[in-house]
Amino acid sequence: MERKYALFFDIDGTLVSFETHEIPPSTILAMTQAKANGHKVFIATGRPPLIITNLGAIEHLIDGYVTTNGALCFVNNEVIACKSIPQDEARLVVEDSIEKNYGLIVIGEKDAAVLDPNGDVDLIFRQHLAVENLNLAKPVEQVLQQRILQLTPFFDKDYERELMARLPGCTSGRWHPAFTDVTALGADKGEGILTMAKHLGLDPEYTMAFGDGGNDSTMIRRAGIGVAMGNAIDELKKEADFVTTTVDEDGIRYALSHFGLI
């Protein structure tokens, strides 16, 4: 009997092109074929649900979501996992960002807050990544009353190492030179896909993960098959079982075809 796979796709740089901000037609067709062949389709993204607004072409194919780098996983309206950052550590980062004057996105269970003293958040998220809905942000003190799922501070790797040493209850996954995503310890994409597999009774050996950034590392390693995009960072390519072509060169279709899923 032909085994069916659970396919986990990162969004930015994997499903959605950084150049066009759209899902290539070949990717839509390949995912439609994979679904028709009995495979399951999941999203595994650093984005919180509020800003997952660029998947309209494939929404009808999606069986579940691993969001905020694994901190919030859900199927339909059922929450499978919700892991929050220790409240004191979330507040520490907010206070540090105000003191040091760097940009910060705070993702609560229901709302988001944006601190953008230098315009970095707007420049990169709205203009470079075409992110929508950040205009719906709420005051940071209001969001801090909720469970905090993710913090996205805008600073370099050197300061990231310095700050993370003060956050024992957190982990960090960087997929862009300008910022990193901070989540609770144990909340990462690798844990997210294993949690989803266990909940749905899927064999982890028959999971396949697709990604391009540093925050995809855990799922590329833990999935049955880890696929790095041709545009992925070099470190991820070294960890992957297979390196496909870029998102703009039909990378998803090429990989699914290579493994005989379409």
Rank of each mutant, 00 (worst) to 15 (best):
Y5L: 15
A6P: 05
D10H: 01
T14H: 14
F18T: 00
F18D: 10
H21Q: 01
P24T: 03
T27G: 02
A30N: 03
A30M: 03
M31G: 15
G38Y: 01
K40M: 13
V41T: 05
I43G: 00
T45I: 11
G46L: 09
P48L: 13
I51V: 08
N54A: 07
L55M: 12
G56W: 15
I58Y: 06
G64P: 01
T67N: 08
G70S: 10
G70M: 10
A71C: 03
C73K: 00
N76D: 14
V79Y: 07
A81M: 14
C82R: 04
I85S: 01
D88S: 09
E89T: 00
A90L: 12
R91F: 13
V94F: 08
D96L: 14
D96W: 04
S97A: 10
I98G: 15
N101M: 13
N101G: 02
G103D: 08
I105F: 04
V106P: 00
I107M: 09
N118F: 06
N118L: 11
N118I: 12
D120I: 04
D120C: 07
H128Y: 09
H128G: 09
A130Q: 09
V131Q: 01
E132Y: 02
N135T: 10
K138S: 11
P139F: 13
V140R: 04
E141Q: 06
E141H: 03
T152A: 09
F154L: 15
E162N: 03
L167Y: 04
L167E: 04
C170W: 02
T171L: 12
S172A: 06
G173T: 00
R174M: 06
H176P: 11
F179N: 03
T180F: 05
V182K: 01
T183Y: 06
A184G: 09
I193S: 05
L194A: 02
T195F: 11
L200Y: 02
G201W: 14
M208L: 14
A209Y: 14
A223G: 07
G224H: 10
I225P: 02
V227K: 04
A228S: 03
M229S: 07
N231S: 06
L236H: 09
A240R: 06
D241Y: 11
V243A: 10
T246D: 13
T246K: 13
T246I: 06
D248S: 11
Y254K: 12
F259E: 08
F259W: 15
